[in-house]
Design a protein around this nucleic acid. Structure first.
Length: 430
RNA sequence: UCCGGAAUAGCUCAGUCGGUAGAGCAGGCGACUGUUAAUCGCCGGGUCGUAGGUUCGAGUCCUACUUCCGGAGCCA
């Protein structure tokens, strides 16, 4: 008999099936054991009745421990008390792998303990739900760009120099040369945009800042589209359309997981275009009206982003920050040269920056001056400057942080649960 | 790096005024025909983070260190 998955059981009511999985929990009385079986697709209650299986098998079932792996055969039946729920009346059962003293009990645990057992914690229903939402988000991101004729052009992970020159990088040895783990694929995407028109990359990025907050990881995944002949306005529209598509896809396909996470759905259902757009200057005024001491030239910290985003019922786009606080490749606003043609999308409900991007500087001379002004080594950027020497073109793009997006959509308080094996300031294992 | 908090059973925690340690869960044994973190009874389980100090006596007070948590800066 071919094994079926728990998720498929509703199509097999009245039939005998084989199931393979792990014991999630068990409740017992004198003549009946209730095994809760988990197989990765879901969980189902399996009934082992003394009179159905005989004393030998009944006794074996009684000795099973949490997370033992099993194969069982049984008939799929409607749950006698719960509408729409099925259970399995077991007729045969084989213990495949025992499990002695499984460390994660159904009671509470501390974060550090759970992170030490992250390889096992992934089995619990909450972590399962989060990572399924993560998968749905990634699926939606890829589908969004693929449907719009973007070409996936992944950027390298070893890089010879800093992209932005600001953040701390992880340094590593590369055949007796220094190399750094990438903090962004963007410069490479600009080359890709010149070759393919519309390109995106999706991969891990690394930041070595000694940062320890609920929104930081040393290793995180980023999606970075870059489009030739697109300006800042087009960039904002693209970011807005992407987020709408992603949220709609999760709402459509992962509602049980969101319910498991007790995620309030109304704020997600409001994520529809158009998103409000405010300039940096307007954001400063908004903060001042709220009694937050902020003046032109200040960057926004977590508190400021929260104040701004709480003013709106959906993601808000803040554009045209002072050029002085932004990376060297940002194009200046011709109408106000002290401003950069850049934008950040702030997630609602205080989730802060989930997208950052903008239009890139396409004039060779201006870019050279900017590299010098930022005191970056010109040699390292010669290839990048070639993109301005050979058919320069207006272009724009952005980066979307996957973990912050997962955290927002799942309604979590920390990004550490949004990635299977988080790399944090003090955690490199498991 | 800075500011704050914490460290006691396998896990989550309580521990009063300084008088040598307690619960729930997990584990073991038993009871119970339908349970949903099942319930009920019994049992085993401790170098109180480490090193000093004060004291007749320290889980408790003091000092240093270590680790973790929350936040800041920095960032997506």
């Amino acid at each position: 008999m071919t094994p079926v998955t728990v998720a498929q059981l509703t199509q097999h009511v009245g039939q005998r099936v084989t199931l393979q999985g792990w014991l999630y929990n068990m409740r017992s009385s004198k003549k009946v054991h209730f095994l809760e079986l988990r197989d990765g697709s879901g969980t189902v209650q399996c009934i082992v009745g003394l009179e159905d299986v005989g004393p030998e098998l009944f006794e074996l079932a009684g000795t099973l421990t949490q997370e033992s792996s099993l194969e069982l055969v049984g008939e799929v039946k409607a749950h006698p008390k719960r509408a729409g729920v099925v259970e399995v009346a077991v007729s045969a059962l084989t213990l495949l792998g025992g499990s002695k003293d499984y460390p994660i009990s159904p009671k509470e645990h501390g974060t550090d303990f759970l992170m030490d057992h992250r390889h096992l914690w992934l089995r619990s229903s909450r972590q399962h739900a989060i990572l399924r939402v993560r998968h749905a988000i990634i699926q939606a991101v890829r589908a969004f760009f693929d449907q719009r004729d973007f070409t996936l052009i992944d950027a390298p992970i070893f890089t010879p120099s800093a992209c932005e020159g600001t953040s701390t990088l992880f340094e590593t040895d590369y055949h007796d040369d220094k190399a750094y783990l990438t903090q962004s694929g963007q410069l490479y995407m600009e080359a890709a945009a010149a070759a393919f028109g519309k390109a995106y990359c999706f991969g891990p990025t690394f930041r070595a800042e000694k940062s320890k907050t609920r929104r930081h990881l040393a290793e995180f995944w980023m999606v970075e589209p870059e489009v030739a002949f697109m300006d800042l306005e087009g960039d904002m529209q693209l970011a807005e359309a992407l987020l709408c598509h992603v949220v709609a896809h999760v709402l459509e396909t992962r509602r049980p997981e969101l319910e498991r996470l007790e995620r309030e759905l109304a704020p997600l259902e409001r994520v529809k275009a158009p998103f409000p757009r405010i300039s940096y200057r307007e954001a400063i005024e908004l903060l001042q009206r709220e009694g937050h001491p902020a003046s032109f030239g200040d960057d926004f910290g977590g508190d400021e982003e929260t104040v701004i985003s709480k003013h709106f019922d959906r993601p808000v786009i803040v554009h045209r920050y002072p050029a002085a606080m932004k990376a060297f490749y940002m194009k200046r606003d011709p109408a106000a040269p002290e401003l950069a043609l850049c934008m950040d999308v702030l997630g609602p409900e205080g989730y802060g920056e989930i997208i950052g991007g903008g239009q890139r500087e396409d004039a060779l001379d201006t870019l050279l001056a900017s590299i010098d002004h930022h005191q970056l080594p010109r040699e390292a950027f010669e290839w990048y400057l070639d993109l301005r020497r050979y058919g320069s073109f207006p272009h724009a793009g952005f980066g979307l942080g996957i973990e912050r997006t997962v955290s927002w959509i799942c309604g979590l308080s920390h990004v550490r649960e949004t990635i299977p094996f988080p790399r944090l300031l003090n955690r490199l294992s498991p």
